[in-house]
């Protein structure tokens, strides 16, 4: 088995007396999709914020290519090759595709003016690579569909050096067809072979479609993990619901 690009060892995160994460382990391999599943409040958001450098872990260690890494800011994490695509995508609706793509990292000449043609070209090529042929890079992001925006945010993260791509519920709040587009995009990024993807989702079907490896979180702890093959036959739905027994719920329903 190849070296994991990122390894998370025994991460604990406490907010005062509240234990958000209680010793979480995670491995992300290049060219793999790692699905991170769990119910609301399971600690998924805290975990990705820790990986993205927003929170510092209380204890535990993150390793990048086997070397211990400490992120003091989101910038540190981004420099270490961790690209986070949050649910709100960090896009500006009124600005054009290109201006969003290069927001904060514009290509300029010696006089500080932007090389717009070059930027248009790069934005177009990067998005074409993962599946959107954009006719007009001056189009405002506000006129794009949710799936297209997702693709733009992913293409941006990859272009600026992401080796681990964290996708925070990319398929929620999208229509059926657009969800499929995003899953296709994930598959295309996976096919490049050099990028590991952490795919956070509520949706069991989506995770089964694209993921190679699964981690289930409940109440800040890992309650199940393994590759697709290892988990075959296990009840993914039961793990997703935080281990709660659906049968138990049916019994309670009957009593009401």
């Amino acid at each position: 088995m190849a070296e994991p690009y990122m390894r998370v060892e025994n991460i604990v995160k406490k907010f005062g007396p509240f234990i958000a994460l209680n010793g979480v382990n995670l491995e992300v391999y290049p060219g793999e999709v790692h699905a991170l599943l769990g119910d609301n409040g399971a600690g998924k958001s805290t975990l990705i914020k820790t990986l993205a450098g927003v929170h510092a872990p209380t204890s535990g260690q993150i390793y990048i290519e086997g070397q211990p890494a400490n992120f003091r800011s989101p910038r540190d994490a981004s420099n270490a090759g961790i690209g986070t695509v949050y649910q709100d995508l960090a896009l500006n609706q009124l600005m054009s595709v290109t201006r969003n793509f290069f927001m904060g990292r514009e290509i300029t000449n010696a006089f500080g003016s932007m090389k717009m043609d070059e930027m248009d070209k790069i934005a177009h090529e990067e998005m074409l690579k993962i599946g959107i042929d954009f006719s007009d890079p001056t189009q405002a992001v506000g006129t794009m569909s949710g799936g297209q925006r997702q693709t733009l945010a992913i293409a941006r993260a990859i272009h600026f050096g992401a080796r681990v791509l964290i996708l925070d519920e990319p398929t929620s709040a999208l229509g059926q067809k657009q969800q499929m587009e995003v899953l296709k995009t994930i598959k295309r990024v996976r096919a490049r072979g050099d990028i590991g993807i952490i795919f956070i989702t509520h949706n069991e079907i989506h995770s089964k479609l694209v993921a190679d490896r699964f981690t289930f979180l409940a109440l800040g702890q890992v309650i199940g993990e393994g590759t697709k093959a290892e988990l075959e036959g296990q009840d993914i739905r039961r793990l997703m619901a935080g281990g709660a027994d659906i049968g138990q719920l049916e019994k309670e329903f009957a009593e009401l």
Binding site: A90, N92, Q93, R99, M103, G104, R105, G112
Partner: peptide, 24 residues
């Protein structure tokens, strides 16, 4: 309309948090 600073000004006014997340 032509400089990096201009892009930052638009980004700041449109969605401050998105701009900040991208290092503006």
């Amino acid at each position: 309309s032509k400089t990096r600073m201009g892009n930052w000004i638009y980004a700041t006014g449109d969605n401050k948090e998105a701009a900040r997340a991208n290092g503006v």
